[in-house]
Simulated assay, not measured.
Amino acid sequence: MAGKNRKGRKGSAPQDIRNSKVRRDYEVGDTYEAGIVLTGTEVKSIRAGKAQISDGFCRFEKGEFFIYGIHIDEYAFGNINNHVVRRERKLLLKKSELKKIERALEAGGKSAIPTRMYFKEALIKVEIGICTGKKLFDKREDLKKKAQMLDIDRTMKAFRVR
């Protein structure tokens, strides 16, 4: 029975694949959870953690919502039926959510950017954020706030030790 219990094994639970650039370069507004249409070798490659979504973006095309620019490595044990590494992949959302996203993108100045890819039970989901680009001075303000918080934490830690 030890073979059936996967919770105790190291590395059995796949980790989230996160977009590390999104919080630095964008202000993230609303987020939506979307399903994604994948092939079998893509799923196996994602389970192995061989995917990257940092260059990804989403766009409407003929009334359907697609994600572009994500990189899913070829499956190591795949054969001639292996998938294409970079291709557009269809996202699955409810009609009401699609309408909200389309309205937000048509208003201008916003982009749909994938923030993370994760497993929800056996399914792979993509979290899509409606983002507004940050200007250079916004990024500088964030760095200043981060530095101030680090200084505060250091001084608080020094007082706790005494």
Results as ranks from 00 to 15, higher is better:
residue 96 S to F: 08
residue 79 N to W: 13
residue 32 Y to T: 07
residue 46 I to Q: 08
residue 129 G to H: 09
residue 129 G to S: 11
residue 140 R to K: 15
residue 146 K to Y: 13
residue 49 G to C: 06
residue 106 E to L: 15
residue 139 K to C: 06
residue 156 M to V: 10
residue 83 H to L: 12
residue 150 L to Y: 15
residue 64 E to G: 00
residue 15 Q to C: 05
residue 96 S to G: 15
residue 64 E to I: 01
residue 144 K to R: 13
residue 5 N to R: 10
residue 129 G to K: 13
residue 84 V to C: 09
residue 86 R to W: 08
residue 98 L to R: 04
residue 44 K to T: 00
residue 64 E to A: 06
residue 64 E to F: 01
residue 1 M to K: 04
residue 162 R to Y: 11
residue 47 R to E: 01
residue 134 K to Y: 06
residue 91 L to Q: 01
residue 88 E to L: 06
residue 143 L to K: 11
residue 76 A to K: 04
residue 149 M to K: 14
residue 50 K to G: 09
residue 3 G to C: 02
residue 48 A to E: 08
residue 6 R to E: 15
residue 61 E to C: 11
residue 152 I to R: 08
residue 76 A to Y: 07
residue 142 D to G: 00
residue 92 L to W: 03
residue 3 G to V: 10
residue 23 R to L: 11
residue 47 R to I: 01
residue 151 D to E: 12
residue 5 N to S: 09
residue 12 S to N: 03
residue 105 L to D: 02
residue 103 R to E: 15
residue 145 K to E: 09
residue 28 V to W: 04
residue 161 V to M: 12
residue 33 E to P: 10
residue 27 E to Q: 12
residue 33 E to V: 14
residue 144 K to S: 13
residue 116 R to F: 08
residue 67 I to S: 01
residue 141 E to D: 10
residue 3 G to H: 15
residue 131 C to H: 01
residue 125 K to M: 10
residue 109 G to M: 04
residue 48 A to W: 01
residue 125 K to H: 11
residue 12 S to I: 05
residue 46 I to K: 07
residue 75 Y to Q: 03
residue 161 V to I: 15
residue 77 F to H: 15
residue 67 I to C: 01
residue 99 K to S: 13
residue 65 F to Q: 01
residue 151 D to Y: 09
residue 19 N to M: 00
residue 33 E to D: 14
residue 62 K to Q: 07
residue 60 F to V: 01
residue 117 M to R: 04
residue 73 D to T: 02
residue 138 D to G: 09
residue 71 H to V: 08
residue 150 L to V: 14
residue 13 A to E: 06
residue 129 G to R: 12
residue 115 T to K: 07
residue 129 G to N: 14
residue 73 D to I: 07
residue 152 I to Q: 05
residue 140 R to T: 14
residue 129 G to L: 13
residue 52 Q to E: 11
residue 88 E to D: 04
residue 32 Y to L: 05
residue 6 R to F: 15
residue 53 I to Q: 06
residue 83 H to R: 13
residue 111 S to N: 14
residue 56 G to K: 00
residue 112 A to M: 05
residue 97 E to I: 02
residue 36 I to R: 06
residue 128 I to C: 02
residue 158 A to K: 05
residue 69 G to S: 04
residue 82 N to Y: 06
residue 84 V to L: 04
residue 37 V to I: 15
residue 87 R to N: 11
residue 22 V to F: 04
residue 150 L to T: 14
residue 83 H to D: 10
residue 87 R to V: 11
residue 54 S to M: 12
residue 83 H to I: 14
residue 63 G to N: 08
residue 37 V to N: 06
residue 22 V to K: 03
